[in-house]
Design a protein around this nucleic acid. Structure first.
Lengths: 197, 197
DNA sequence: GAAAAAAAATGAACTAGTTTAAGACTTTTA
DNA sequence: TAAAAGTCTTAAACTAGTTCATTTTTTTTC
């Protein structure tokens, strides 16, 4: 069977942890929903109860919250081959505190809550897939939050640039400030300073 | 069959997510190792390759790294009914960057890397248990690191005190400073200020 | 392709948290 | 139980990053 590009991408992602038979692949794909959103459109907004987890096949999204003063705090940028969503709201059916907004026209594959549960019944191997996916996410999350703590804003900027050279060029300086955890003004000063070298 | 207190605690913990038969319970327990360490002893030190994941049945531990200046950054305090360890080192067999030190005499149940793999073969339900455990950890980790970002040190202190009243009294002010992310001197000022109210 | 909107740069005044240093208090150890 | 080691407090000088206000540059929209 011939698969679409987006399906090949997600099947490759899954195959990092588990092997699927041809039948299982087709079953899995049948549980996914294709979603396309335009630049500046929201995939979710604070207050929504989200019913999907998403895999990005093309484009770029920013995931952020607004603090009490209305200032945005960006928790991640998600591009092709990334998983995103709000797992807390997805699991508990409580309203999310997150906004997820496309910074480019974006194509996604979504799995609904109902199909997520179904998936474990139909292909129990996916318990293992998600166990390993979450384990890996947890490791990199812990590493990131622990590593960042002792660095200055300038060091965090240089680190981001080095680690994600492909993302830096796709986002605004202002959004990067929101991710690094500083004001856009200070971000501007840092960039001027670093580039002068 | 009659179980030890420590075994009852871990079985209750597991039963939040999966149900085990009597036989499975006994099998599970047979894969665990009992470990006791004295106050001030290390469960692991930076450079070690850790071969266990741990469940605490009694006592208190602090998990921390040292930054380039040798200042400690505490990433968690772990007490009874908590899981701890360094998953990154456990999974990849790379040396850990963490120190885990007992702040009280502590009793743990450990599962070795070999038995962890065996567990999934013998009782596949544990894929589901760990999938759900990691999912839950990920949710609270994300929540914590995102929530903390916009608060002042004073607000983070009040939040910690409210959320973990049982832990505050078991740790030093200095260690709390290492967790909140400030100097012990500033921690002292905050506490004086908050108590004056 | 002109007008409007948003992003970036710059600078001056400000603040949350650090650093250093020294003395008081508490806990641990021999 | 005395000495040593570690913890806590206080205070003054300092710095990384914020806030606010203005101008320039870039991007978006019609």
């Amino acid at each position: 069977m011939l698969y679409k590009e987006s399906h090949i991408l997600i099947l490759n992602n899954v195959s990092r942890f588990i092997n699927l038979t041809e039948l299982e692949k087709q079953k899995y794909i049948s549980l996914l929903t294709e979603i396309n959103i335009k630049r500046k459109a929201f995939l979710m907004q604070a207050g929504d109860i989200t019913s999907y987890e998403y895999f990005i096949t093309k484009g770029c999204l920013k995931v952020y919250t607004l603090d009490d003063d209305g200032a945005p705090h960006i928790s991640m940028f998600a591009v092709e081959d990334y998983w995103t969503g709000d797992m807390a709201s997805f699991m508990t059916k409580e309203p999310t505190r997150y906004f997820i907004k496309a910074t480019e026209d974006t194509e996604l594959l979504g799995i609904s809550r109902a199909n997520y549960e179904l998936l474990f019944q139909e292909i129990p191997k996916f318990e293992r897939f998600y166990r390993m996916l979450y384990q890996k996410s947890l490791i990199s999350y812990i590493r990131r939050s622990n590593h960042g703590i002792s660095l200055t804003a300038e060091e965090r900027y240089i680190e981001f640039k080095t680690k994600y050279p492909n993302i830096v060029n796709r986002i605004t300086q202002k959004d990067l400030a929101g991710y690094i955890g500083i004001t856009p003004e200070f971000m501007s000063k840092i960039i001027t300073k670093v580039n002068r070298r």
